[in-house]
Design a protein around this nucleic acid. Structure first.
Length: 412
DNA sequence: TGTCCACAGGAAATACGGGGGT
DNA sequence: ACCCCCGTATTTCCTGTGGACA
């Protein structure tokens, strides 16, 4: 056989056995806006999130009567499609408005990482080209004025979509006061605010004076059920994968597990993506068993990535807790843990924090799910947090290793 | 019934760093 | 060069507390 033909044949078999055809379609962040919208269009075309879209439409209908829709609050857990649905909807709205010669602009403020009020305003100003990125050193008022100047003369509807509003770490009140009370008064156009949050009670801690001003509609996003997830996943499979390489039932399994655990579409796609990666690496097709492994691997990677990106003090805290809990095999208490932490700090020549601060670090680790900590009273033997480490031993060892590497130490 | 342990966790103070305005 | 402003991290100080024990 000629070399040319051989190569041709080899390439052909490789292509036939490839699992991932278009990797980009497994990760939203690698898609262009248009591609994202085209995926969304397919999803929404088959009646997923139908109810929500309908309600959004009726909420925004007043625009076509030159009326002013009131503000909107999107509620629902992460991965239930608040952001994508809203963006998709706003995009459609803009097209519709263009046809009807109505001026409409929208802007998406993404707070998926927590930010203080200052950052939020700064980001907004950047979007509007009203200011450059400051780290600090400029007053809040100055930022607000610049923002106002930029949009004061805009005649149409200005829709501001503040995503994950509860992530405003400090001074949510000032931000809302600006958005709700001050900004609308100084604009010639009409301002429509949209907030999204996964906390149902995000409005509870607002200053009542602002709250009374804030006329707001609520829109719930239920977690996806297995059926929805199945359609969402199958669209991704169609776009990205070679269907011959997927064992039957895999799709159903991912959908079922995801709907039970969280109803989070993003995570479901992530599981699919990870499974495909493992399968490709091992030259097998995607099987049920691979899905299980993918889920474990995702969880492990999450923990490792989380601790890698954490401050040194948190890493040291985790290390101390893991070490002493691996040794003793019984619950740990704050005092003891602080002791080992103190010793560890001495060893790596890092300044140890006060116990007060250490206690907060423990709570933080609990929030991230590394440990379980709860206050427990032992009567006259005091009240303290009980710390339980409840992760697989292999993962704990891995985490220890990671921390040591962060501190440039050999596992000795 | 009161005591008292070993902390929890809130509030305010302090330290620090870095950028803008002048 | 200087001062002021702001955000973050941490400390200091503090009051609160469930329940075993005497």
């Amino acid at each position: 056989m000629l070399a040319e033909q051989k190569i041709e044949k080899q390439i052909k078999t490789i292509l036939e056995n490839t699992i991932i055809l278009k990797r980009r379609y497994l990760d939203d962040e690698q898609l262009y806006r248009e591609e994202q919208f085209s995926v969304l269009k397919e999803i929404f075309d088959v009646n997923v999130r139908d109810r929500e879209i309908k309600e959004l439409s009726s909420h925004f209908a007043p625009i076509f009567r030159q009326d002013h829709p009131i503000h909107l609050s999107l509620l629902g857990k992460t991965g239930t499609g608040k952001t994508v649905t809203m963006l998709y909807f706003l995009n459609l709205m803009q097209n519709l408005c263009r046809k009807s010669k109505i001026e409409l602009r929208y802007m998406h403020l993404d707070l998926s990482t927590p930010k203080p009020c200052f950052r939020v305003l700064n980001d907004l100003a950047c979007f509007l080209d009203a200011a450059k990125r400051y780290k600090r050193g400029i007053s809040l008022d100055e930022l607000m004025c610049r923002i106002e100047d930029k949009i004061r003369d805009y005649p149409g509807y200005f829709v501001l979509f503040v995503d994950e509003i509860d992530h405003v770490r400090k001074d949510l009140d000032s931000l809302l006061k600006f958005l709700v009370k001050r900004l609308p008064q100084r604009l010639s156009g009409k301002l429509v605010l949209i907030f999204s949050s996964n906390k149902l009670d995000w409005q509870d801690n607002i200053d009542p004076r602002i709250k009374s001003f804030l006329k707001i509609n609520e829109q719930f996003f239920e977690p996806y059920d297995a059926f929805d997830l199945k359609t969402i996943l199958s669209i991704r499979i169609k776009k990205a994968l070679n269907p011959k390489m997927i064992q039957s039932g895999v799709l159903e399994k991912i959908a079922a597990v995801s709907s039970q655990n969280h109803g989070d579409a993003r995570k479901a796609v992530e599981i699919l993506s990870k499974s495909a990666n493992i399968a490709e690496r091992e030259g097998s097709i995607i099987t049920m068993e691979l899905v299980d492994r993918a889920m474990e691997e995702i969880e492990r990677d999450n923990f490792v990535a989380m601790i890698k990106n954490s401050p040194k003090q948190l890493q040291a805290t985790l290390f101390s807790i893991i070490s002493s809990s691996l040794k003793s095999n019984r619950p740990l208490y704050t005092g003891e843990a602080y002791g080992t932490y103190h010793a560890f700090c001495a060893k790596i020549k890092m300044r140890a924090l006060s116990q007060r601060a250490f206690s907060d670090l423990i709570s933080e680790l609990d929030m991230y799910g590394f440990i379980q900590a709860r206050v427990l009273s032992h009567g006259r033997y005091g009240r303290t947090k009980q710390i339980i480490v409840n992760l697989p031993r292999t993962l704990l060892e891995k985490l220890k290793q990671v921390v040591l590497m962060e501190f440039d130490l050999n596992p000795a």
